[in-house]
Design a protein around this nucleic acid. Sequence first.
RNA 1: GCGGGGGUAGCCAAGCCCGACCAACGGCGCGGGACUUAAGAUCCCGUCCCUUAGGGGUUCGCAGGUUCGAAUCCUGCCCCCCGCACCA
Length: 961
Amino acid sequence: MSAPPYETHAVERKWQRVWEDKGVYRARAAPARPKFFANVPYPYMNGYQHLGFAVPFLRAEFFSRYKRMTGHNVLFPQAFHCTGLPILGAAERIAEGEPVQVQILRDMGIPEAEIPAFRDPIHWIEVFPEAAALGAAVDWSRLFITTNLNAPYDAFVRWQFRKLKEKGYVQLGKHPVIWCPKDEAPIGDHDRLEGEGVQPVEFTLLKFPIANAFLVAATLRPETVFGQTNLWVDPEATYVKAEVDGESWVVNPRAADKLREQGHAVRVGPTLTGKDLIGKEAVAPGLDQPILVLPSRFLDQGRGTGIVTSVPSDAPDDWMALKDLKADAAQIGALGLDPARIAAIQPIPIIQSEGWGPLPAVEISDRMGIESQMDREKLEAAKAEIYRTGYYTGVMTAAAGEFAGVRVEEAKERIKARLLESGQAATLWEPADPVVCRCATPAIVKIVDNQWFLVYGNAEWKRAAHAALDRLVFFPEAVRKQFHYTIDWLRDWACAHHRGLGTQLPWDDHWVIESLSDSTVYMAYYTIAHALQDGKLRSEVPWAKALTDAFFDYVLLGSGNAGTVAAQVGTDAKLVEHLRKEFLYWYPFDLRNTGKDLVQNHMTFCVFNHVALFPPEQTPRGFGITGFVRLGGRKMSKSKGNVWYLRVALEEWGADVVRMMVANAGGGMDDPKLDLEFAEVARGRLAGWHAFATAKGEGADAPTPLDPWFLSSLNRSVALTREAMQAMEYRIALRTGFFDLQAAWDWYRARVGVPNRQIRDRFVETQTKILAVFAPHVCEEVWQRIGRSDFVVTASFPEARASEVDVRAEASEAFVRRVLDDAREILKVTGIEPKALTLIIAPPWMREASALAASLAREGPVTMSSFMERAMGVGSLQGRPSELAGLAKRLVEDVSRARREDLDRLAMVFDERAYLEAARPFLERQFRCAVAVREAGEPGLVDPKGKARSAMPGRPAIYVE
RNA sequence: GCGGGGGUAGCCAAGCCCGACCAACGGCGCGGGACUUAAGAUCCCGUCCCUUAGGGGUUCGCAGGUUCGAAUCCUGCCCCCCGCACCA
């Protein structure tokens, strides 16, 4: 049991308090200084935050800290989001005592007695803000929440929407919504007992003329009309004859209701049963041939019209129903059908897809051993498989007439359009999967015709958004294409709904702006939030309670005049002018970092809306994208039960370790992986750093021969770390700036025995500063304990000093290392336990020849002859042409494939003997035996195995006793 | 199918844009050693195969190609992940 070296939690709390008290992270415009404005999307406040939020958040935070330490005035604000349905829905469910929702709160550790308080949505919002414990460098004076719970923000969003509407970016349109016929209201995700996330899909209604009416069948596969062989109705089911848009349709009663909700004029007429229809003939749309109406049992009366067209070639349901019927002579007889005609019905090949014969439904039914049309489970799987391959790889056959040879994906749309055009078809919307309202009523789809849209489909707007992307910097660059693609396919977005928390549409208070639409340009609000909010989630600033459009026009757009605006809102002109300056100073933001799930909605909306409201110089400058956080190899997600709450992680590891873990989790397009083993390592290393850095410094006040080498390594580490930080590559930064630097120190210490105290101090200072980005608490503690009076978190990040990069020191140390490695290799291979080592360096002329070759190579390509020519002009080399020629071949080869910077090193002639002599005590410690240094050819050299022959410049021969 | 990102030694993961420093960074795991009463922590060494002298062999999804030289460039193929689409 060893006591922790310092009290992690206590130290972290202490510094968090101090930083806050001293306003270290509070940011105000300072025109003389360069600024950096970073932010992340505000989190939604329906529970405690988990690491899925913390990772993108911290990736932005690290960057903001780095920028602060490299001379920038940094703004890193944070707010909270409560727009939308989840909180409201959850609060209502708590009010109803709904057990699942109650359990969710229990699981988050909410005491039983406090659970009833969550009936009030506002309680949720006020309980959960808890991010400060991460030690994040946030300017909390700009804190706020969204919706009309916070008047100035509410006014801001209303301003935004009025502007968008003025410019024609918000328009009315039609929109299918999942709808509860009993409540007569749309059903949001969080009001559903069943069917979360289910969207409406569009069916094609095929109209089969029969007598003076149409039988109307619903299908999702209009391209299969060429394979129709018959119609299915349920003999026991009830149908109605209804007048729809002036035509007479036969559908089931539910379908009649649905059609009415979808904008059709419907008048329900007489009732009939399935039996009445069976045996009749109707002309099939597309196919243009009469087909029989036959009985089946698999029809779902809740979906479509209760009448289904039969395509036994590609629909396993139809194939099985047909098979069942053919085998059921009794039913055929009872319904008075002609057995011969039924026996004659054969599937028609219409789609050729990869890996399938002409009749996939027949094929798969056989393969899966499907017994009958009631074998629902297998049939669903069969359908899914056939549909998938058919849709992606299928091509229409000759049966499709003019569509022969067209891919299914394309044919589907074209055939549907053709049928609609010719009046042979109509459309019907259904939920893609069953949806049940909280009132237990099954949902239908309603076409709402007064829906407000943000018209992201607008070509002009898209063009401007594309242009804004071209001005953006992406981390990583690879996501840029993703954004362009999203802009292209994005359609109009329904931007308001009837329920939930939010801001009302300014021109129509029946509507509440939905959550992805009220959060597109609010980063601008941060620039003035300190004055509007005064550090409170819900503003209590009197004059900010009634902000006008003129206020935002002036502050954010620069139109109008400060005096007028000030008088209007009841504050003074100076303040209004000041806010305009804050905005101009900070905006646009330099980095917004989010999870990659937001690329196709929020982040793209952000670009669109900036383009709509602000001039080009104020559209976003940098977007960072983070993958999906993985824990234990699995994606972190609430629904999969693989969540790690921030408060739990912080409790267990402390903020610094959690931050290190996040930095190490990896960036780019990869999913960041939280590695608990690394956390363990990091915990130890941070504690170790604290202990080392704050210990009474061992060492002497005297230079060592290794000082230049260590400083050189240190500067290289710093340079690489800066490069990595600038690219948000934190794992690399951690490696170069922490682990590699530590390894360099370990080597230095092992080499010199007693370090130079000055070097040690330099190491401590540099390391503490670098590490402060990731582990600010430990570093601040160290900083204070080594006697610094400022804050390390605002200190300047180490500079790479070119003057301290010492190529010669690096070369000589690489030489020592090479000797060490070579000797080890020999010992390993031979298995000899050494009694003594003799290092035999190459003779001086060889070393000169080597350096000559390298310096020639720096000037241009070297050949044997050009080298020899020059070498023969050098005094010490003249006397030995044959020996030189032998060496030259190898030198020329080595030198011609070396890199530029290695040549610089190779070109140096240095005193190998002196270096090895100096390193002798170290080598002797390493090998635990005597080490001698000799030179090839010197008198009295003991070399029984003739090793001296293999001595080369930079690689002494080694003789082991 | 469309768009994007990938496949590197037991695992994680650099390198690939800008071909030679690459048997291929680093971490984990594993083996050995130092330190310690011991454990842990820490530090050092090793960890594709062969090798009693610093060497050799075979590797970077698969198959070809370009090149004096390819993990890196080109062509084709296979597989994985994300988004879209789609799932009567």
